[in-house]
């Protein structure tokens, strides 16, 4: 028996969803990104200058943001 949505499912047979980071590497990626964030934050803490807010703060925040998401997934809370 065919329904419109079943046809949609069949039509998309060639493109199963693949996450950008697979389940196996979530822990590594998350840990590396969080480590980078920690190092950059440490360097920022030693040089509290205005120029370092965008120069170190932005990459550190980005690394922390993505690293936190992957680390939370890696420990089993699939957000």
């Amino acid at each position: 028996m065919s329904t419109p949505l079943l046809d949609v499912w069949e039509a998309a047979a060639s493109s199963p969803y693949q996450p950008s980071i697979s389940k196996d590497s979530q822990l590594t990626v998350g840990a590396v990104l969080l480590l980078i964030a920690l190092l950059l934050a440490g360097v920022f803490g030693l040089n509290l200058k205005f120029i370092n807010v965008p120069l170190l703060g932005v990459p550190a925040s980005l690394a922390f943001g993505f690293g936190a998401v992957y680390m939370i997934c890696a420990v089993g809370v699939y957000v």
Binding site: F44, L48, V53, L56, G57, A60
Partner: peptide, 14 residues
């Protein structure tokens, strides 16, 4: 959202 939160912490620290 997490990035913006963290950036706010950096800005506040400075």
């Amino acid at each position: 959202v997490i990035t913006l939160g963290m950036f706010a912490v950096f800005a506040a620290t400075w």
